[in-house]
Nucleic acid binder design. Structure first.
Lengths: 233, 233
DNA sequence: TAGATTGTTAATCGATTAACAATC
DNA sequence: TAGATTGTTAATCGATTAACAATC
């Protein structure tokens, strides 16, 4: 928005471009900026330069300025960035201020662990309920969240305007569960089912989590560290 | 290795290069190849071409051939790739055959969820125990894994040649716990403590997991999907 | 004003894709 | 042998870094 008065001749073009064409690499770095700024606020920092932030985050100052400028001029020449303002802007970009509503499907070990964290609320996401098909769990509550029957998932999602489905179901059940929710207007899935959930409709967003991939990356790095490594190195 | 007889004049150079300089981007794709090949084996497929694999995985055939060739010629011209052989080779690269040994530190909700999965053994990693400082849990067993006191962590790690520490402790405790394990010869950490664990020693490998970042990426994508998106688009 | 630091353009680097010769 | 498909080189594309003019 700031850019409008700076570049009066081209503002129409700039509005359209402001959020479009942001490189994926930049988007994936936003949560880390957000985390880092949260820490800086906690420490009472009021302002920070790209130089200093670059030292904390171990990236280049150039990258920080380039990244932030994908979304507009959040800083001020000669001053740097206002920590709280930048944090607020990035929160906005990441939808923290939109109050998305989520339900967790599957009340197994992972579902329960996700019910127990503060991860959601800390990021502006409200959890409404858990869903499972185990009659012993239905009607109980886990970490303050009611456990409902999967049979009620579609109507519940519709009536409560659920935005996000957190899938901790066995992979065989993932599509069936997701389809119900899509019919009820759910827009995004956080999928822990260890398979690539995918829909033709580009408006349905899926974030597939593969914890095992992360473990394997760790094993690869251990195997190839200088200490261990291949014998012919 | 195969490259030796193909390029007799330059083999010394090639041995050094064979595993060195593999782009990070390639390494991060290996677990997905591994998963996909596991599925193909389950389905009884014997051979596959880069073309067909590219269609299944929705990447280019060129990328698949380029990626695999970072590690040697696993295929055969005019034939493609032998599914089982390729799977075995990638398993080897990822250390699945090395039988790494892990312990989980923290028997809270996440620690328990990790105790319950088959994620580790499926990737050749053996879990030996959980550690916690809650006296009520010490001496019990969770999903077949004994829960020990944190006080025993260092000696246990040394005596049992533990390779990997899975950290599900509060972030304030992460370095203290990790340092103990490093003294005991632990080489790698799978860190869920939601902070960047980092050591000067390049032989200590850390894989920092930030589940919350993944949730935020999902929210960003929902917010910016064509359906919702910014009003001025 | 002078100093600092951004926003932005240009240069570099790395990763992906295309093309094709090698070869099974 | 002819057809298929890899391994590999060259071309393209995207992402990162460097440099500096704009400006607070």
């Amino acid at each position: 928005m700031e850019s409008i008065d700076k570049l009066p001749g081209t503002f129409e073009k700039r509005i359209n471009e402001s959020k479009a064409n942001v490189p994926t690499a930049v988007i994936k770095r936003l949560p880390r900026y957000h985390r880092c700024l949260t820490d800086l606020i906690r420490d009472g920092r009021m302002r920070i330069s790209s130089k200093e932030l670059s030292e904390i985050m171990e990236v280049t100052a150039s990258q920080i300025r380039q990244d932030l400028n994908c979304f507009g001029g959040f800083g001020q020449q000669g001053y740097g960035y206002n920590v709280k303002y930048l944090h607020a802007k990035i929160s906005e970009l990441l939808g923290v201020t939109d109050g998305y509503r989520a339900v967790i499907i599957g009340a197994g070990n992972l579902g329960r662990a996700l019910a127990a964290t503060h991860m959601f609320e800390r990021r502006g996401v409200t959890r409404l309920a858990l869903f499972d098909n185990n009659p012993e769990l239905i009607g109980t509550s886990i970490c303050g969240l009611p456990v409902h029957s999967i049979d009620e998932l579609e109507s519940f999602s519709r009536e409560n305007a659920v935005d996000i489905g957190v899938l901790t179901v066995p992979k065989e059940a993932a599509y069936e569960v997701a389809d119900k929710m899509i019919r009820a207007g759910v827009k995004g899935f956080w999928n822990f089912a260890n398979m690539e959930l995918k829909f033709d409709n580009p408006d349905i967003i899926v974030e597939n989590v593969h914890m095992g991939d992360s473990l394997m990356t760790l094993c690869y790095a251990i195997k190839n560290s200088s200490q261990n490594g291949d014998a012919n190195a």
